[in-house]
Amino acid sequence: MASASAQLHQAPPGAPSVAGPGQVLLHCNWLNKQLWFDQLTAAGMPVAWPEDIRDWSSIQYAVGWNFTPEVLAKMPGLRAIASLGAGVDHAMRPGLIPPGVEILRIVDPLMAQRMATWVMWAVVNFQRKMDLYARAQAERRWDKTIENLKPWDNGEVRVGIMGYGVMGQAAAGLLRAAGYDVAAWARSPHDSADIKVFSGRESLRSFVERTDVLVCLLPLTAETEGIISAQLLTWLPRGAGVVNAARGKHLDEAALLAAIDSGHVAGAVLDVFATEPLPADSPLWAHPKIRITPHVSSITDVPNAVAQITENYQRLVAGEPLLRVANKSVGY
């Protein structure tokens, strides 16, 4: 007898039909996982939770996040994995994905806009010393000396964005439109008529040395893991700020704490962490110069993502080339 959840896997009356081989695995433990299931089902995809898969060998398309080797080993016919988010580092661990299996990204302008807005807030928070104003409010203290009656104007703030992909370009565009002095760093050369884009490891130090607010939006790869190291933090001008909305493993958290406590780095705004959820005993929580958000800088827009995931499923069934395929050789 089919389980109650298996009965939900049938597309509702009137849903568009997507003829395809077997079920589509939905592998997700997010808080909104039922929303993903419902919207993918409404789009006509025959999604099923792992416990409701009838024939693992028939699965050619899987959707999800943080697949395990054990789950992947059950699907010998797998041809493509659709990520539920813009990042694909969860699927790029060495040896995880079998050869010949494509990894599909989500590319969403709305997600980029959300990220750009969060980055703008983080820069302004640091620039205008909003944490100090919040503390003064909590103490019922009317304090106009926090900025010494002379705000640090936008054109005086040198923002450096690490990563110049979709997210990085959106953040750079918004900051530049507001008058900030913006530069970017990428692993490979980029053409930009609007800002200077440093590229390659040989230019990383020069990029960091001209940066008052360092923003990390890099993809996580073997080359970028740990890139915000103790050494890199010493290259920042004294009093600079650090913003990380990429992946927690980009940042040496202990080195950041030491740099802040020494006075070299003035503060940080962090959205991502090496361990998530951030453990309750982490010293980051209570540090007065660190602002924390719980990995919410750019939440995936479910309807847009579902449309892209469904489109690629239809292309797979029709034998057409897949879109937004990640490059395994570079890790994103």
Rank of each mutant, 00 (worst) to 15 (best):
R54D: 10
K144T: 06
V63M: 09
Y164Q: 08
M45L: 15
M111Q: 04
T117C: 13
W56R: 10
S57C: 04
A116P: 05
F67D: 12
D55W: 10
K129G: 02
R79Q: 15
G160A: 13
G44V: 04
P69S: 01
N148S: 14
I106R: 00
T117N: 15
H90N: 15
N125V: 05
R79W: 08
E102N: 05
R93S: 09
P46S: 03
V47L: 03
V157F: 05
R158I: 11
P46D: 01
G155E: 09
W152G: 01
A48V: 12
G160L: 09
R114V: 00
V107P: 02
R140Y: 08
W56C: 12
A86I: 07
E51N: 00
Q113V: 12
W49M: 05
P50G: 07
L149D: 14
Y164V: 07
L78A: 04
N125K: 09
V119P: 10
M111G: 15
G163K: 13
D131L: 13
M115S: 10
D55S: 10
W56S: 11
A91Y: 06
P50D: 07
W65A: 10
G95E: 03
V157A: 14
E70W: 10
N148H: 03
R135Y: 10
E156C: 06
I106W: 05
W49N: 06
L132S: 08
Y164R: 08
A136P: 05
G85H: 04
N66Q: 14
A116H: 03
W152L: 11
Y61E: 04
V166D: 14
V166I: 12
G87A: 04
A122N: 07
G85C: 12
I161K: 04
L110Q: 13
K144D: 09
A91N: 15
S57G: 15
K129V: 00
W121P: 02
E147P: 00
R158F: 06
E139L: 13
R79C: 13
A86L: 06
K74M: 14
A48T: 05
W118E: 12
P94E: 06
R140P: 01
P98L: 02
V88F: 01
I59F: 04
G165N: 01
Y164P: 00
G155V: 00
M167V: 00
G77Y: 03
V124G: 05
V119K: 15
W118M: 15
F67A: 06
F126W: 15
Q127C: 11
V63I: 15
M115T: 06
G95L: 12
V119E: 08
P76H: 14
R79A: 11
G165A: 08
Q113D: 14
P94K: 02
A48N: 07
G77C: 08
A48M: 01
M92R: 05
P151Y: 09
V47F: 00
R128E: 02
A48Y: 03
D52R: 06
G87S: 05
W152I: 05
A91R: 06
L149S: 11
E139M: 07
Q60R: 15
M120V: 14
W142N: 02
H90Q: 15
V159P: 12
E139Y: 02
A134E: 10
V157E: 14
I146Y: 02
V159C: 11
Y61D: 09
A122I: 14
M120G: 10
I103L: 13
S83H: 03
G87E: 04
